[in-house]
Every structure is written in C-alpha cells, then in structure tokens.
C-alpha cells in the first residue's frame, strides 16, 4: 500500500494531470457506442462498486453488473458538458500511468478493497477541489445507480411507490 506521504504527492501531481485532462483524454480515450461506457470504465466501476456499496450489496457479480449498467444510463442522461468532464476523468482512470499516479492502483481487477478504500478516502478529503469533485461524482453515480433499483429497496425497508389507480 501507498504511504500517506506518497499518496499526497501523487494526489498533487494527479490534480495537475486532471486539470490538463483534456489533453490526456485525447490520447487515452477508448471508443464506445453512444450511451455506453468504454470497457476500461466499466471495469473501474465494477471494482469500486462493491467497495462503495459494502454493507448493502450482496456478494456476487449480478448486482454489480446491474449497478454498472445503471451508472451507464445515468451518465447518458447528464448534460453534454458533464459527460465530457466525466469522460476525461474516466479516461485518466482507465489509463495505466495516470491511474497509478492518481490512485495508486495498477489494475482494477487486482485491486484490493483496502486499496480502493484508500483511494476513495484520499480523494474525498483531498485538498484539491478537482479531486474532491471527482470523488463526489463516483459517489453519486454508484449510490444513485444502486438505490434507483427496486432490488436495493428491501435492504433499507423502502416499500417502493404506492399504486395509483
């Protein structure tokens, strides 16, 4: 695991990299059909979803896939400007050198829960607003995609909308 000091340093550099994300993005963008996320972005969400939803999501890949599908739909409904900003963030998180620098994670599929928690917590309380904003986007997308789904409602006792007729 990264030491706190290394992380802060990486974060600082990362913040600069994120600011210049447009340039990086051009070099790193993977193409995906309209309304879909590139494979590397889906892999990132598949890795962070069980961590963000720990304690709520059952073990197993089924719900994770459905959350990632929900994230994909949510992103497609955002403004063009927000989609473009997220595209830059996803591009960086899908690009090995940038990802390693920003998150300390080499491969999403091999990352441990502790590594992902450390990366999320680091961004959450980061002193660079851009990183905090990026954390907030991941937070809102994953939680929103899960709690939009009826299968999540029973975990919190929400009965769902009443019937109107």
């Amino acid at each position: 695991m990264l030491s706190r000091r290394t992380f802060i340093k990486a974060g600082l550099l990362g913040g600069i990299a994120l600011g210049a994300g447009g340039v990086w993005y051009g070099a790193t963008r993977e193409s995906a059909p309209a309304g879909h996320l590139p494979g590397s972005t889906r892999a990132m969400f598949a890795a962070i979803t069980p961590v963000i939803l720990a304690g709520s999501l059952d073990e197993g890949n089924g719900p994770v896939e459905r959350v990632v599908d929900g994230v994909e739909r949510a992103v497609a409904g955002l403004s063009a400007a927000a989609q473009s900003e997220l595209g830059e963030l996803f591009g960086l998180l899908g690009f090995y050198p940038a990802r390693l620098l920003l998150t300390g994670i080499g491969d999403w599929r091999l990352a441990t829960r502790a590594e992902i928690e450390a990366f999320l917590d680091g961004w959450r309380l980061h002193r660079i607003a851009l990183m905090q904003g990026a954390y907030a986007a991941l937070h809102d997308l994953v939680l929103g995609a899960w709690y939009a789904q009826p299968e999540s409602w029973e975990t919190i006792g929400y009965p769902g909308p009443p019937e109107v007729k």
Binding site: L53, G55, L143, Y147, A148, T155, I156
Partner: peptide
C-alpha cells in the same frame, strides 16, 4: 427518497450502508 437521500448522505461503504438501513 432512496436516490436523493443516498447521494446526499456523505461517505460510502459500511458507514453509509448503516445509515441507509435506518432510512425509514
């Protein structure tokens, strides 16, 4: 409501899930 509340609430993981279990 679940989406508005869960996204407004801070944190993630077990801590967030514990708050959500108290939703009602």
């Amino acid at each position: 409501h679940p989406v508005l509340f869960s996204t407004t609430l801070q944190g993630f993981g077990d801590e967030h899930a514990a708050s959500m279990r108290e939703f009602t």
